[in-house]
Design a protein around this nucleic acid. Structure first.
Length: 126
DNA sequence: ACAGTGACAACAT
DNA sequence: TATGTTGCCACTG
């Protein structure tokens, strides 16, 4: 259940401020797993099974897109549009093709090394 | 223990 | 530039 990597991913995503976005690959690199981008997506996918749990309600999953700034939820029309709406409500411009305009302008800088270290070592506050 | 899978990303045409 | 192909990693049954 408590896959450590998932929890690390959630901890990072929780820190993404409103109006900012990042990518699956960048999160993977923050956690020291340079090529675990797919696993990050897999972790976020797991949220749909826990949306009842309040502990996972505060995770701004909508702020994670792919490396090109595209919303990556394909074959899931409803969720993809929901993600676009959520981003728009934060002031992030999303085209009707589900692409973020001026993606690099909204990119999140990431966490300070110390905070990342805490998350990786399981000392995150939560 | 092992093979299949997916909200990715980097390359190769 | 635009597609198609090939690694990747963590999780699951």
């Amino acid at each position: 259940m408590n896959a450590n990597f998932y929890e690390q991913v959630y901890a990072v995503v929780r820190r993404i401020p409103p109006g900012k976005v990042t990518s699956y690959g960048r999160i993977a690199r923050m956690l020291g797993r340079n090529r675990a981008a797919r696993a990050v997506g897999y972790a976020l996918n797991g949220l749909k099974d826990r949306h009842d749990d309040p502990a996972y309600d505060d995770i701004p999953w909508q702020r994670v897109v792919n490396s090109k700034g595209h919303i990556s939820i394909v074959n899931r029309e409803f969720s993809a549009n929901l993600q676009a709406d959520l981003l728009l409500s934060e002031g992030i411009p999303v085209t009707d093709e589900l692409r973020i305009l001026n993606f690099n302008q909204y990119l999140w800088e990431g966490l300070p090394l110390g905070e990342l270290e805490a998350i990786i070592e399981g000392r995150e506050v939560g």
